[in-house]
Design a protein around this nucleic acid. Sequence first.
DNA 1: AATCCTATGTCAGATTATCTAACATGAATG
DNA 2: CATTCATGTTAGATAATCTGACATAGGATT
Lengths: 128, 128
Amino acid sequence: MNDKDRRSMPLFSIGIVMKLTELTARQIRYYEENELITPERTSGNQRLFSFNDVDKLLEIKNLLDKGINMAGIKLLLTKEIKSEVSKRVGSDLSDEELRSILRNELKDAGRFGRTSLRQGELSRFFVK
Amino acid sequence: MNDKDRRSMPLFSIGIVMKLTELTARQIRYYEENELITPERTSGNQRLFSFNDVDKLLEIKNLLDKGINMAGIKLLLTKEIKSEVSKRVGSDLSDEELRSILRNELKDAGRFGRTSLRQGELSRFFVK
DNA sequence: AATCCTATGTCAGATTATCTAACATGAATG
DNA sequence: CATTCATGTTAGATAATCTGACATAGGATT
C-alpha cells in the first residue's frame, strides 16, 4: 500500500477528529454538507475520516480564521482551481462562473475593504 | 510533538482496529486482559488505540500464528526482556521466574517437539 | 431600522458502536 | 476424561453518532 492510499484511508471517528482539529461536530458536518470534505461511512452510516480529511479540516479552520467563506474555501480545496484562478487574477475577474460562486463576497470586485474579507487576505485567496 | 508522541496517541476505535488487524473484538479485548496492550479510554470508557497498539496487535497476531502463547508474547512485547531472556539461553533455563511464567509450554524444557511450539520456533522465541 | 445570510449552537429521538460479564467450545495437554 | 487456552457468542447496558429542526449572533443588504 502506498502513501497516497494511507492518506485517504478511512480511520477516524468524528469524536477523534473533533479533538485533532478542535472543531465541533456541527462544524465538521456543516463542512461536509458544503462538500469541502466527503468522509467515508461505516456500514451503519457513521463517518470515518482519513488523514487527508483531517488535513483539509485544519486547512478549512485556517482559512475561516482568515475570513474566507465556505464558497471560497471550496474553490481552494475541492478543485485544483488554485492555479486556474490565479491565472485570471490581474486579467479578467468578470468571468461568469467565478462571479456567481463568489457573488456574496465579491459581487463588487473593485471595492475591497467592504467585503467580509479583510484587506490583504483577498490576495491570499487568489494567489496560490 | 515528536514521533514518539504521535505513535502513542490514542486515535482508533476498536472497530477500526479490527479492520486494520483483522482481529475480532474478542481477541483484542482478550489481549488487553492479558496486558499485552493497554489502550486508552474515552471519558465514556471506550477503548482508544494508538499506532503502537496496532503495531503490537499485528505482532501478537504474528507470534500467535507461530504457536507462541500469551505468556510468551507478553514476555516479548511488554517488557524489554528479549535480550534478558536470550542471555539465559544455553546456560540455565531453570530460573524460577521464567519457568513459572512459561510453565505451560516450557515445563519440560528438554523435550522440544512435544510442546505446542513447533520445532524451530522455540528458538525464534528466545533469540531476539 | 428591518431583513437576510452565513456559520454555528442546541436539542430531541433514533440508530450504531462499544462495553462488561457470562457461558460455550474445539484443540491441545496432562 | 478433566483442564487450560484462545476464541465464539449472547444479553443487557451505556456511549457515540446520526439526521433534522429550530435558534441566534454578526455582517451585509436593502
